[in-house]
Write a protein that binds this DNA or RNA. Structure first.
Length: 946
RNA sequence: GCCGGAGUGGCGGAAUGGUAGACGCGCACGACUCAAAAUCGUGUAUCGAAAGGUGUGGGAGUUCAAGUCUCCCCUCCGGCACCA
């Protein structure tokens, strides 16, 4: 068999497709549309490696399939070329970024074209083209007019290496995502987009999107919505109040101190009255020097300083609370101040332990005893209970009580008298019941725990407020025999905790809580009932949140982790922000008819590092007449971030040459939204949030008709290098697609990348494995010699294949689609001849994957039109069933034999035949069949006994 | 710590609760060849001579039947992380 010449075939067809404009897209509104989009590439200087085209191949296969299904398919491509990578590359190589970008695009395009994509290049876009960025600027002006773009002087992330401010989304932890430099907080003038105004809609509309749970969850986490309340704490002897955001207003009675972020405005304001100002200043300065990394990795070890002379009042009970500053409170979240409830917040707990602050428990876990549940029609008595947990550290034993009249083993336990101090009560009970005195009191275990149970010895239901106290045997501890009356009730017994837990008579509803607190002292953050909270005691948490907030005149509010989008960059290579600063009119947008504001040519575009962009130095560009009053004005010199263009580019492909509108409304209504969007997981919380935000804004101002830009979303799994690491010039493990196309052909590359494994999964490249796909194509090529009009045909297999390949492409399961095609080809190869019609169908099924070879073979069959214009075959539901069914016979679920029958054979017949299978008979001998399970067409299972 | 996702041959992986390992790579043997490559054919989870047993990260459970469903645990990958 002669192998095919892929180079010749590819050259021939790529040229022909181009000349005949095979893939031109028209706005044929008679047809149903399908908009398939790739996240467009950033044309770097490195060129493509073999991983880049994976997503493009997938969308190409999908788009070709949808075209064959009769859809009008839009599958465009373009370039995202503004921003730091291009600019840094240009600086390094001493060329103008515009020149570098042009060259890189040419290289990318050349590489892509070799792979045989069906792009309509007439719709190519480029974010750095003034014709394109005119509309990016136009959108900014609309945002500005609606108050969604604002100037701010707040501290932001500053990358000292890239010399520009960055958005939160541009950070990788605490370092600049581009260059890896640790970022600083720097107060500076900047433009910010009010994305938080869209936070709830970005969150709510996520639910209905047919995206993967992981991407949706990532976005939810990123937005980080939390419901809570704003509460106000008056500062004693001043007019000021400290406003606090908390998700737990129900714990207000447990607030024992307050913490402000070191940067909080009130700290500076009240510095004169702070008596330890030196210490406070020192802490503030130390914090300012710390990077976020130091703040977090230095650990959970809390630091802080009390503000002596500053006291606030708890609005719930008027208690005076001390005020601290600590870097565990972040200036950028909530109000930059918290009420600290150490009993019910782990961070506050750690801080309170370190600074010896009081811990007041106001939420009690609430248990109902399962062993002795409360009885109906029985009076319930409330009692305050005390548990003594008495530990002998020498033997690691604990002192318990074994009860005489009831089968109970318990801690030393008793009730507190009305008004009696709990510690007094527990000491009294210990002495009475065990005879021990002068035990060493270690600590109380947490706070109150409520438990309800039936107390058989008193025939009453108890609602107990239980408290546990840990004691140890000390050198002064004395022991006397308890009284005979007490011994009659229960006997003190030393046992280990393990023995206690294993004791079937162990009675202690709250044991789980005590046990946890014995091991580790910690805050209680779980469910429960309010205690020690005045009139609110007895309420459940959710109800208390509302009532206490209302009681102190607070407001229920919502906070987001998401912060407004820092939108200005002090760099050259971006869209100029189209605003003018005028002394009389303030900030005025550039007139829309004057757009685009072109990026001026400049001799030096190096970043200045001063907080101003290089554009600030070009006087003839900066100085301009004010669009409003005609007086003197100065242009805004900041530029937009890399993510501006990609936030709306999907709309421009629909109408790329429109000079008067961003997109023609009729065309938008037809093509939008994107039906299938494909790209990398790394864009889950940046591009995909920004683009959703802008799209929703454009919806609000009537530019688009859909609320969401992208319907179905598939994320591409990375292709790793053969060594399992990321492909990188640095490791020298990069595989270039050009080499693979040249060696094995574009079709083999395409099929291999789709066949490697599940589309969304990261898999290492293997050139060895790739030879299999080339062999497969050779076999398809070889088949043409055995094609005869009346050749052999496997109807069932053919129809199964039509069904599976179509369904698998539609659901992005390309690997199994290809495997099915291989099964069909293997079957055809084994025959002496292949029916012409079946062969033609095979070629059309393979066409989306291998566009060049199938087009060539199609022509060889005598066709004069492109195979890519053919209709997808329709399978016949009645031809999917095999002529015979293989029935599995199981005995007790184990496979013991097979037989074949007609698929529609009935149950009775199947049972009968199953019992006659030679390999089955020995297993049934002497056994009684107690159950027979029959799944027609599949199996018979006999359950036997004996 | 919290939230997602995943653990199946030598490798990539496949499997509506119904014969685990499809398909591909590799490997072994055979054919062709002076020889090799390419190609074609046969075989290829594992223990066992066989009958049969054992096998989808580990452990329990549901079911006639579990890779698949439920619970617990381990490991790996990704995201978030002092967010009040």
């Amino acid at each position: 068999m002669k192998s095919f010449d892929h180079k010749e075939i590819e050259r021939k067809w790529q040229k022909k497709w181009q000349n005949e404009r095979t893939y031109a897209v028209t706005d044929d509104t008679q047809k149903k549309k399908c908009y398939v989009l790739d996240m467009f590439p950033y044309p770097s200087g490195e060129g493509l490696h073999v991983g880049h085209p994976k997503g493009y191949i997938a969308t190409d296969v999908y788009a070709r399939y949808m075209t064959m299904q009769g859809m009008n398919v839009l599958h465009p491509m373009g370039w995202d070329a503004f921003g730091l990578p291009a600019e840094n590359y240009a600086l390094k190589n001493k060329v103008h970024p515009a020149v570098a970008v042009k060259k890189n695009i040419a290289r990318f395009k050349e590489q892509l074209e070799k792979i045989g994509f069906n792009y309509d290049w007439d719709r190519e876009i480029n974010t750095t083209d003034p014709v394109f960025y005119k509309w990016t600027q136009w959108i900014f002006i609309q945002l500005f007019k609606k108050g969604l773009a604002y100037e701010s002087y707040e501290p932001i992330n500053w990358c000292p290496s890239c010399k520009t401010g960055l958005a939160n989304e541009d950070l990788d932890g605490n370092v600049c995502e581009r260059c890896g430099t640790v970022v600083e907080k720097k107060p500076m003038r900047q433009w910010v987009l009010r994305i938080t105004a869209y936070a709830d809609r970005l969150l709510e509309d996520l639910d209905a999107l047919p995206w993967s749970d992981s991407v949706k969850e990532m976005q939810r986490n990123w937005i980080g919505r939390s419901e809570g309340a704003l509460l106000r704490f008056p500062v004693v002897n001043t007019e000021d109040v400290v406003e606090v955001f908390t998700t737990r207003p129900d714990t207000l009675f447990g607030a024992t101190y307050m913490v402000l972020a070191p940067e909080h405005a009130l700290v500076a304001k009240h510095m004169p009255r702070i008596t330890n100002a030196d210490e406070v200043q020192a802490y503030i300065q130390a914090t300012a020097k710390k990077t976020d990394i130091e703040r977090t990795t230095e650990g959970k070890e809390k630091t802080g300083v009390v503000l002596k002379g500053l006291v606030v009042r708890n609005p719930a009970n008027n208690e005076a609370l001390p005020v601290y500053i600590s870097d565990y409170v972040l200036a950028g979240y909530g109000t930059g101040a918290i009420m600290a409830v150490p009993a019910h917040d782990e961070r506050d707990f750690a801080f309170a332990k370190k600074f010896n602050l009081p811990i007041t428990y106001v939420i009690a876990p609430h248990f109902i005893d399962q062993k002795n549940p409360p009885k109906k029609e029985t009076p319930t008595i409330e009692r305050v209970m005390v548990h003594a947990i008495i530990h002998d550290t020498k033997t690691d034993m604990y002192l318990m009580l074994k009860w005489k009249k009831n089968p109970w083993t318990s801690f030393v336990i008793g009730g507190a008298e009305d008004g009696e101090d709990l510690l007094t009560a527990v000491a009294r009970e210990v002495e009475e019941e065990t005879g021990y005195t002068n035990l060493v009191f270690k600590r109380q275990l947490g706070g109150t725990v409520c438990s309800e149970y039936f107390a058989a010895h008193k025939n009453e239901n108890r609602f107990a407020y239980a408290h546990a106290f840990l004691f140890e045997i000390g050198s002064n501890t004395q022991h006397a025999e308890p009284s005979p009356e007490e011994l009659e009730k229960h006997e003190p017994v030393w046992m280990t905790l393990q023995e206690f837990e294993a004791d079937p008579n162990m009675t202690c509803t709250e044991y789980g809580i005590w046990r946890g607190l014995l091991e580790k002292e910690t805050a209680y953050t779980g469910e429960g009932m309010l205690v020690n909270s005045g009139d609110f005691s007895g309420l459940e948490i959710e109800e208390a949140k509302k009532k206490i907030t209302a009681f102190v005149h607070g407001e229920l509010t919502v906070q987001y982790r998401l912060q407004d989008w820092v939108f200005s960059r002090q760099r050259y290579w971006g869209e100029p922000i189209p605003l003018v600063h005028c002394d009389t009119c303030g900030i005025v947008p550039v007139r829309e008819e004057d757009l685009p504001v072109r990026l001026p040519d400049v001799e030096s575009y190096e970043p200045t590092g001063t907080g101003e962009s290089p554009l600030a130095g070009i006087e003839e560009w900066v100085n301009i007449t004010c669009p409003k009053c005609g007086g003197k004005g100065k242009r805004e010199t900041n530029t937009m971030p890399q993510w501006a263009g990609s936030s709306w580019y999907h709309l421009r492909y629909i109408d790329p040459k429109n000079e008067t509108k961003l997109v023609d409304p009729a065309k938008e209504a037809y093509w939008s939204p994107v039906d299938v969007y494909v790209g990398g997981m790394e864009h889950a919380t940046r591009h995909l949030i920004y683009a959703r935000f802008w799209h929703k804004f454009l919806y609000d101002i009537g530019v688009v008709t859909s609320k969401e830009p992208y319907q179905k979303l598939y994320t591409v799994g990375l292709i790793l290098a053969e060594d399992g690491r990321k492909m990188s010039k640095r490791w020298g493990n990069v595989i270039n697609p050009d080499d693979m196309v040249s060696k094995m052909g574009a079709d083999a590359l395409r099929i291999y990348e789709m066949f490697m494994g599940p589309f969304g999964q990261a898999i290492a490249w293997s050139t060895d494995h790739m030879v299999g796909t080339r062999r497969f194509l050779e076999r398809v090529y070889g088949l043409r010699e055995s094609v005869k009009d009346d050749g052999e045909v496997n109807v069932v297999l053919l129809h199964k294949t039509i069904k599976k390949v179509g369904e698998d492409i539609a659901s992005f399961n390309f690997n199994t689609a290809i495997s099915q095609l291989m099964i069909l080809v293997n079957d055809m190869e084994k025959r002496t001849s292949v029916q012409g019609a079946e062969y033609k169908t095979l070629l059309t099924l393979l066409a989306p994957f291998a566009p060049h070879l199938t087009e060539e073979l199609w022509e060889q069959l005598g066709h004069t039109t492109s195979i890519h214009k053919e209709a997808w075959s329709v399978y016949d539901e009645t031809k999917l069933q095999d002529a015979v069914a293989t029935i599995v016979v199981q005995i007790n679920g184990k496979v013991r034999g097979f037989f074949t029958v007609a698929p529609e054979t009935g149950e009775a017949e199947l049972k009968k035949s199953a019992k006659e299978v030679a390999t089955v008979i020995p297993h049934l001998e002497g056994k009684e069949i107690v159950r027979e399970i029959v799944v027609p067409g599949r199996l018979v299972n006999f359950v036997t006994r004996g």
